[in-house]
Amino acid sequence: MTQPLLSVRDLHVQFTVGNAKKWPWSPPGIVSAVNGVSFDVPRGKTLGVVGESGCGKSTLIRAIAGLNPPTSGKVIFDGKDVNYGNKRDLNALRRRMQMIFQDPIASLNPRMTVREIVTEPLRYFRPELSEEERRIVSRGMLDRVGIAQRNFNRYPHEFSGGQCQRIGIARALVTEPDVLLCDEPVSALDVSIQAQVVNILSELQRDMNLTLIFVAHDLGVVRHISEEILVMYMGGVMEHAPAIDLFGEPQHPYTQALFSAAPIPDPKIKMQPQMLEGELPSPMNLPTGCLFETRCPKRSPECAQTRPQLHRQGPAQVACLKLEKELI
């Protein structure tokens, strides 16, 4: 088996919140945003990450990018451990790993022209290039995402959301990285534009042999672009499976509930959304057992005791005690 390009092992991310303190010196509250996530992504493949708001999916990829460093756990990139405390290491990582963001307009500096935005990465990552070469490279990249040459001296606010997202993609890919982290890149776009951006991404992935980690809450888009999908809930992985199997036969009770609620654009199919009862646990005070235990329709007493680990269930990996038992 070939070595995966990116491996994440037992990643945890915690934040401290200081504004709910009794006294200035009392210990700050700790929010656990990501709780023990592990996965591998082979080169040239796409891992989709889905989950509802607050499930830690954005925090997870921001942690991998080093924008909010992981509290514990390992990120192995191309066979090497990434040390997020070391600036040299981090820059070496970012040379090969770039990111696109949710809000296409806010992710571009409003005071810079499109050309300046796209040449900037080259200035940092390929300082050996001359000014002229930089122009050529950035022009080629913008061309590939479909931004017309005559618009290069324009400012971001003169473009539509979809065009801004394409400029964002050009900025991320102009240095030819290996990994592109996508933080809900199409959530803010209209359906007709979404498809454009998704298609450009898959095209570029094929041409540049990119590895994508694609975070979204829209199941349809994720399914479309990903080979494998990670379903997250409260910062933990509930299920990790190939896209086809996941959508064909979701295993985990949470995945099942999530999929049953997704609207289907066909009036003939009567939706039967599964209602989840119970309250979401507070991320400042997570249950010791299964993260989904408070809302799970299939819970049993032991679910509140032990945190289930991912185990193989056919083609999928599922974190559920009940399914684990059935297997034995």
Partner: peptide, 11 residues
Amino acid sequence: REFVDAARMLG
């Protein structure tokens, strides 16, 4: 803002 994150990503 996300463009500051993007700048961070450039090291």
